[in-house]
């Protein structure tokens, strides 16, 4: 079953302008794999060349930051929502 992935405005152009897309997977990492299969332009904006999460991207599984849930290994379930948000910082 697919889960909803909510995209921030800066990532929507790489996903056909959609604010929410559906992707399948049992973990956040698998959901990302499916997302990248559907929208290859998202690859470099989601992951580093080493396949790690970008520091400037916050990823939430429902209300929780996945950094505290096992990162890409965080388990996802039907009806979960994955929300991507840019880190907002400056000086």
């Amino acid at each position: 079953m697919p889960v909803d992935v909510r995209l921030p405005t800066i990532l929507r152009a790489a996903a056909g302008g959609q604010a929410t897309v559906e992707a399948e997977g049992a973990t956040v990492g698998e959901v990302f794999d499916d997302l990248i299969r559907q929208h290859p332009g998202l690859r470099d904006q989601l992951l580093t060349t080493d396949g790690e999460l970008h520091r400037h991207l916050n990823i939430y599984l429902n209300d929780d930051d996945i950094r505290y849930l096992g990162k890409l290994d965080a388990k996802v379930d039907v009806h979960d929502t994955v929300t991507l948000m840019p880190a907002v910082a400056g000086g």
Binding site: N58, Y60, D63, D65, T83, M85, A87, V88, A89, G90, G91
Partner: peptide, 19 residues
């Protein structure tokens, strides 16, 4: 969360709530 006079970093949970 940067708690600085020269830098800022929006608390990620606050960002999610605001969104």
């Amino acid at each position: 969360v940067a708690a600085s006079a020269r830098l800022y970093e929006v608390d990620p949970s606050g960002l999610l709530r605001a969104d």
